[in-house]
Amino acid sequence: MKKVKFLIPAFALVALTFAGCSDDDGGDDQPVVTKLALADPAQAALTFVATSPEAQVIALDTDASTVTVEQVLAEGESKAEWCVVTIQSASQIKVAPANNLTTAVRTAKYRISAGTVTPVEFTVTQDFPEPVDATLSIDLEGEYGYFFTAPAAGGDVTVTTVTTNAHLWTAELDPGYGDEPYCTLKTASGGSGDALVVTFLPNTQGMMQSGASVTVSAGNAEPITIYISQDAPLATSVTIYDADWANVLTSPYGVNFAKDEFSSAKKQEFGVEANGECSVKVVAVGTETEVTDAWIESYYGRGAWVIYAVSENKTGAERKLDVILVGENDKELFRMKVTQAGV
């Protein structure tokens, strides 16, 4: 009988030991989350209309029993009180924005998390209502109309930036006269802050091209018309004629004025045949150094080169300056040697 008394407590202790191990192994086990993704990847970017938006439900592909959702805030960004996000289940999240009564699109970004798997994110973008009174402006000076001149080289040229409170602005090009338009629209529409870009062909005409215009419209705002020109290419060669276009002149060519022969009424004019645009410089004799306070006035335009003295010569001695016509790369194309008598 004594042996039995000792054996019973021993068996009981062993039984308790095994029971305790069984509880420890299984009592704290939790299901491990192995996947979390949007069932439809397109739902990573939800869009809503401005007024009376219908709620959308995001479907999740996950084996999680619970998920959490939080808004991802950029620095300085406020919580999107206008958007209500509700977890309906571990696999469904409801997104319901309020009416957008502002004048701008609004957005919010959210992150869905479960366990230790990589979170997934989605964005909410809500449109704004079309304004009753649309506004429209551009960043060109336009006291007497809007004008823009593109470079002769052509290419895609930003004409202006368009600002509007409407959803979109649209542009329409009038190519003007001529058989072949020298420009086309690169951007026919855009949102506020977008650039109006026009594509120009290289100008090989030897003169400025003009006549085209672009009209920009937005909502019920007053449309804006921009008149578009294109610079002539810079000249690489010129032929200079006398005032009657009868004789070809050779560089350098001498131009003389009497001491009291001055003002535009006493100008001397020369014909210019150039394969591009030219500019005029008044320089010291025999140099290319420009003179800032010159007694000569000279300008070029529309095939004519004009030179005249601006004052009477009271120095008692003749005075001299050169006037040069320059083209591409500031290259000298022709030189006039101008003298005003002193007596």
Score class of each variant (00 low, 15 high):
G271Y: 06
V238F: 00
K109R: 13
Y182M: 11
P129T: 07
P175L: 09
P223S: 04
T62Q: 11
L321M: 08
Q71T: 08
G145N: 10
E273K: 15
E273M: 10
G276V: 03
T164I: 04
L46C: 07
N275A: 05
N256F: 05
V326K: 15
S264E: 14
T47E: 14
L234T: 12
E143C: 02
E297D: 11
V283K: 12
E172F: 01
E328M: 03
W245S: 13
D29T: 13
A153H: 06
V33W: 09
A221K: 02
G145F: 08
P53R: 13
T125K: 15
S22F: 15
T339P: 03
A108D: 11
D244A: 10
G286C: 12
G155Y: 02
E172N: 13
K320F: 05
T158S: 09
A12G: 09
N313F: 02
E273W: 01
A246K: 03
D244F: 01
P151M: 06
A246L: 00
Q268C: 06
A98L: 07
P223H: 03
Q30W: 00
L140Q: 12
T287C: 13
G176N: 09
S311M: 12
A246V: 00
S263E: 11
T68Q: 11
A39G: 12
T187N: 13
T103K: 06
I240N: 05
S298Q: 11
A232Q: 10
N256V: 10
F147D: 11
K5P: 02
G219K: 00
G142D: 04
E288R: 14
A10C: 08
V159A: 04
E290L: 05
T102K: 12
A104D: 06
D28R: 09
D179R: 13
A195I: 01
S237V: 06
S229F: 02
Q209K: 12
T149G: 07
A152G: 07
E277R: 15
L73M: 08
G190D: 06
P41S: 12
D29G: 01
G301E: 09
A265C: 03
L325C: 08
T107C: 00
Y182N: 11
T160L: 03
A309T: 06
D24S: 09
V214Y: 01
K109A: 02
D24N: 08
W305G: 04
